[in-house]
Design a protein around this nucleic acid. Structure first.
Lengths: 146, 146
DNA sequence: GTATATCGTTAGCGAGGCTAATTATATGTT
DNA sequence: AACATATAATTAGCCTCGCTAACGATATAC
């Protein structure tokens, strides 16, 4: 263990590992009936509760016109529904439909299953290492922090 | 430590952590003069040496027409150069230019620096944990395996 | 030498990114 | 109350990047 930890090197390897991990899991999405943009937006709705157009745009780091169009298509396809705010007539609330939530979770399940299968090749102590690293990263990247 | 490790749960948290990590780092890319598609393709060239059109398409998990068009634009902008194969007239080899490599590395540097800054809030033992997890994930997701 | 296979390109379509301008509603000022 | 300003979402129009289908051009097999 280095006396002065090499943040740069760790960051670089974490970054690279995350990229390769997701690239590998993305192959599972071919079987899924959701485009990447829709899947990502839907996950915000399913796991983050109802949000407004603006909040979804911020979460997805895209512009509001992009979200508006995405939402129009997704509503047409029964993946989410819109609801006006009672106090503020400008605001539109978005919520996943049961069908949308189901489709999203099915896609996630496929990805997670693929990763879980690879994890089975690892010895218990390495699994434990990954488990703790995952929790640590969650804390690190969640707003609010530890 | 559980007697029977919960692969599913670990996979789920790893998957989620990777998504949130990359989503967070992506904010750094606004300052970069490279689209995501170009950045990803360029990284294959810079870190993976010269490849053919078909190999790049496979690496990026997109069709060859998509790569052809990407390459046309990137060559026009001086990010890479094409070279024919000496034996096989059908094959086109791709190589990053010095300028392309520089721009890519600058973008990566920005991302990695942002992550490194966040790592500085962690105690040494957690850094060590992440370091080992990153290496482990690399082994897991690299073709050929451990 | 002709057929078949492979590699890349061309053509044309749709989804999803953007900015600028517009509409509708809230809010703040006089 | 009336007017100006701010804010939320939409519309319009453009560009990149994903795809499939069809087409050279070159290699390879018979």
């Amino acid at each position: 263990m280095p006396s002065s930890p090499d943040y740069q090197s760790i960051a670089d390897r974490l970054h690279s590992a995350a990229i390769h991990l997701l690239r590998r899991l993305r192959r599972q999405d071919a079987a899924m009936d959701l485009s990447p943009a829709r899947a990502s937006a839907l996950s915000v709705l399913v796991f983050g509760g109802p949000v407004t157009i603006g909040q979804l745009a911020a979460a997805e780091q895209v512009s509001t016109p992009t979200i508006t169009r995405l939402v129009v298509g997704m509503e047409r396809d029964g993946l989410l529904k819109r609801r006006g705010d009672e106090r503020d007539g400008r605001v539109v609330w978005l919520e996943a439909t049961a069908r949308g939530a189901k489709i999203l979770k099915e896609g996630r399940r496929r990805r997670v299953a693929a990763l879980a299968a690879e994890l089975k090749t690892l010895p218990p102590e390495e699994l434990d290492l990954l488990s703790r690293a995952a929790d640590l990263l969650q804390r690190l990247t969640r707003p609010g922090g530890p």
